[in-house]
Design a protein around this nucleic acid. Sequence first.
DNA 1: GACAGCCGTGAACCATCATTCATATTATGT
DNA 2: ACATAATATGAATGATGGTTCACGGCTGTC
Lengths: 206, 206
Amino acid sequence: MGKVTRRERERQRHRREILAAAQDLFSRKGFDRTSMAEIADRAEFAVGTLYKLFEDKQALYRALILDTVREFEAALSAALNARGSEIEKLERYIETKADLFVRHIPTARLYFGQTAAAQCAPTVGLDRAARALYEKVLDRLESLFRAGIRRMLFVEVEPKMLALGLEGISNAFLPALVERPDDFSADEMAALTKKIFFGRVSLKAE
Amino acid sequence: MGKVTRRERERQRHRREILAAAQDLFSRKGFDRTSMAEIADRAEFAVGTLYKLFEDKQALYRALILDTVREFEAALSAALNARGSEIEKLERYIETKADLFVRHIPTARLYFGQTAAAQCAPTVGLDRAARALYEKVLDRLESLFRAGIRRMLFVEVEPKMLALGLEGISNAFLPALVERPDDFSADEMAALTKKIFFGRVSLKAE
DNA sequence: GACAGCCGTGAACCATCATTCATATTATGT
DNA sequence: ACATAATATGAATGATGGTTCACGGCTGTC
């Protein structure tokens, strides 16, 4: 009973095509300002077809967000769990994130929207599971900072706050990247982030 | 011909009441998920009245955003133009912003939504004028960094990027603040921001 | 080659608002 | 007190867009 029939493969391909169309539209115009008809148009299907593959608009959105956050979470968690000192892990985290941002701008927009922005307006963040995945990354960051502080690699600051601060900086350049994608390389972005976060901006002694 | 008749004063008071109701709803649920009827209800007016005071829903929103951003811009620009060295000005900027955030959380949410988040999804930022005001703050930050670098107060990094980085960190704690408002004082938030941005997080020599 | 089941289709349906406007209410001037 | 102008009201209107479903075609099976 081979479940992987041609039918099923086609079905999954269509599903992916719809998600791709939706990603572009949702990331540029947001959930409410994107209609099912538009998504169907762009994906070259009829509206009805979307409803064959997804319960409703919310479910389609959720699936997309979940895919997006899962992809990011996987890459970022891998970076955070690689070998090396706390600092090296965090540096790899920064590099990985910059790379993801530069390489997949629409995905990055969605990721940022769901993590940073949505935290301030809970009603906007439409998904529970995605949130949980992001929390996992935050927790991992926090515990790395905690360990780093214990080993005297970092200053003594609430580790949770350090994690949020790092998130803040590593997201900071995304708007600029969105506006002029060609002016940024992942390496530059990562270097800048590391310099500001780990180095010191001020030259005066404290 | 005293223009400041009772009628006119009442009118303005009603206007403010409507804006106050709208602020709470928009900041919590966003533009699309807030209906004119809801705003009218909360403000204890009829829908028609909203249309006597505002052209349409967009205009009401624009007025609100403009008020919000204007308020922030005024306070932040004042901080950036006060006496003192570049570092002192920036420190005052950080303190002022933290204070605004802690004191006016709904306003802060709107501000953040319109500045940081909206930059990534241009269609979301519904207002031109508000954007321009924020750009003014960014430009001022940038030129402060530029001057500071010339005077060897800061490391040599693209000043624009330093400005974005500072924005990133000073926004970073807002989500935490929104979630548990009582756990944060403006002073703590400002101190943390300064420590991460101006000080150094890493203890190892570079 | 006929039959059954799956797929895709898009017109039709319905709920949700933004917006309007005829009417009711209140304030102002005489 | 009366006339008049300004203001507030909320039911009615129309547009938008999510969702459904009856239909026609295609695929794989016997």
